[in-house]
Design a protein around this nucleic acid. Structure first.
Lengths: 236, 236
DNA sequence: ACAAAAGTGTTAGAATTACACCCATGA
DNA sequence: TCATGGGTGTAATTCTAACACTTTTGT
């Protein structure tokens, strides 16, 4: 080992803030939800926590985050990005653990959860009514929410929360749910149309008890081309 | 140790992308410069690298970043924030090292460098004409530049690159240098005046061979009050 | 026929951009 | 007196925000 003794090798973990959208069972409202795991082992056994775990040998940080999500919940994420690294000295009561946090979005078909081995159970919680969390996970979650709310305004990440094909009303409701405010339907559609990377498909909704809406999709190549040439979106 | 063997304890380092502004000796141009260290030890001995080093026992990540800056260059930073954590497997030829990168701004009076012990020498480089860097430091630096250029547009961090008291022309030139484009003097001043947190002092420049400009300062309490009530700036 | 959401334009006000000259100072 | 940057306003244009009714479809 070429390093002198005073350098530390803290344990290295990843923790994931996973967001989804869910229809409120009572009332037609939509809610922003986050995935939590009930811890099956100490410390904080029985407490709710963000899905996560230790980084393994030969595994990058991104890989560790994705693996933990699959292991603990069976999820495939539509969007994953690194959030922030938490390194206070006493964030884990066992010993020093540095945690690299991630921010993930999953679309509605993924919401069926298959809890894995080291998690007692996994559940979606409305971000406005969270239980007390283990470790410093409240701080991590707050950082994730902040990132979602700011980034969704200028990058097309919100599509990760929707199915492949979506209606403009679904798209608008997604923004309304994340930003916590109502948007004007006509102005919203004007803006979306002007962007050029939300394109109509030939399909329409099926099986709805009303006039069926046209389905749209996010055209990533079109977006990439635009953002290459220094394009700025400012959605909403 | 409560952890099973397959978990890794990579060495943990911090690396800092430190920006400053410098007057071009030839021609009145201003340049955005970044601090690099010539490595005095292997690996990459003799190569230029970002200032940084290993995190010590009992030291948070932020503390490690600040300490490294003082040790390697004698700098006191005006602004420091965490940037991104790099965890590819082979970024260090010795063994796995995970690096938490930081992004720092220093003001001009700090530009006198006092190289420390484990750095052969420290020097400022124009960001447009960088040498080849050690490790994955080019990637880290690119991330830092990207962060600076995007964040400076909506947060008042650019003041970290200026002296306490500055003229409006200095402020404008700072934005022009970072963003790489010219701004209109009258529109720029109108915008700054409308923000309300760049306030005139009683002082004017001294010792300049021309009409002296009024000095302004950044009023942090005024900014904090504004940004509390959901204010959005959109500088420039 | 009715309920429920889909779809569609215009106008007023606000914000942004383009643009040029006189002033004060020190050398 | 000259060179240098300091300081200032207006008009055209673009963008944003407010606003309501008709259409389609399934029950």
């Amino acid at each position: 080992m070429p390093f002198t003794y005073e350098f530390q090798r803290p344990a290295l973990a990843v923790d994931c803030v996973v967001f989804g959208l869910r229809e409120d069972p009572a009332g037609g409202d939509q809610r922003l939800v986050v995935l939590l795991i009930e811890r099956g082992i100490e410390p904080f056994r029985g407490h709710w926590a963000l899905p996560g775990g230790f980084v393994r040998v030969g595994e990058t940080l991104d890989q560790a985050a994705e693996r933990e999500l699959v292991e603990e919940s069976g999820l495939e994420v539509a969007y994953l990005e690194q959030l922030y690294t938490f390194g206070s000295l006493d964030r884990d009561p066992r010993e020093r653990v540095v945690s690299v946090s991630y921010f993930a979005l999953v679309n509605p078909v993924q919401h069926r959860l298959a809890p894995g081995s080291d998690a007692a159970k996994a559940e979606w919680f409305d971000v406005r009514t969270l239980p007390a969390l283990a470790f410093d996970h409240e701080e991590i979650l707050a950082k994730g929410l902040e990132r979602l709310r700011s980034k969704v305004r200028y990058r097309p990440i919100g599509f990760g929360l929707l199915p492949e094909r979506f209606t403009l009303t679904q798209l608008q409701r997604m923004y309304e749910t994340i930003l916590g405010k109502d948007l004007d339907k006509r102005n919203f559609r004007k803006k979306i149309a002007s962007l050029g990377f939300v394109v109509a498909t030939e399909e329409i909704e099926r099986g709805v008890p009303r006039r069926a809406a046209r389905l749209f999709r996010f055209d990533r190549p079109a977006y990439d081309a635009l953002s290459e040439r220094g394009f700025d979106l400012d959605l909403v």
